[in-house]
């Protein structure tokens, strides 16, 4: 891993972008990284476009500004592709990971992206099939893990189990774990 990796999540209030950013950071911490996870500070409202961020480093992090030049962008709500400026500041060799039934090449041409890597996974479909409702954050975690290789999928599954044990029904926890695994397997990149 390079010394500092910055990730920006795009979602809508209530879709779990902040929770996903935190789970990812906790998994990275468990694997020995220095971490930060924080929302774009503001009153979070259901449905409003929101951003969340992760910083991962091999060295202690003292930087406390927001993320302007992400190495990775994760879009968990496909409707944001048109409305939010999702590629803003994305590094030339950056990774764009999108919840979409489309192929990476279609997204690439839609966004007129010349460089970097684009990944897509149909997190909406996975979420509806596995959880029975639209909660695209956990499948997008699976896609992020696969695309970046920054943390192991096992550690992410462990963190999800730890975080929700006793808070969610076992069936729902299992559903989230399956959603991560399916997205991990199904994500396509180019």
């Amino acid at each position: 891993m390079q010394d500092l990796v910055e990730i920006r999540w795009h979602g809508r209030g209530g879709q779990g972008a902040v929770t996903a950013a935190k789970i990812f950071a906790e998994a990275a911490l468990a694997e020995g990284k220095y971490i930060q996870a924080f929302p774009e500070y503001g009153p979070e409202r259901m449905g409003a476009p929101i951003k969340a961020f992760d910083r991962l480093s091999n060295k202690p992090l003292s930087l406390h500004s927001q993320v302007y030049y992400p190495n990775v962008v994760v879009v968990i709500d496909p409707t944001l592709i048109q409305t939010a400026n999702i590629t803003e500041g994305l590094a030339d060799d950056g990774l764009l990971i999108i919840n979409s039934p489309k192929n990476p090449s279609e997204i690439r041409s839609e966004l007129n992206l010349k460089s970097g890597k684009v990944y897509t996974v149909d997190a909406t479909k996975i979420s509806l099939e596995v959880l029975g409702r639209f909660m695209p954050n956990t499948p997008m975690l699976g896609a992020l893990v696969k695309a970046t290789g920054l943390v192991s999928v096992e550690k992410v599954l462990e963190e999800i189990r730890g975080k929700f044990a006793g808070k969610l029904k076992e069936e729902l926890i299992q559903g989230n774990l399956n959603a991560v695994k399916r997205a991990f397997d199904e994500v396509k990149g180019e």
């Binding site: 935190k22 950071a25 906790e26 911490l29 220095y34 971490i35 930060q36 996870a37 924080f38 929302p39 500070y41 992090l61 406390h64």
Partner: peptide
């Protein structure tokens, strides 16, 4: 910046 951010 600190109150709502997660760090180790």
């Amino acid at each position: 910046i600190i109150s709502h951010a997660m760090e180790q």
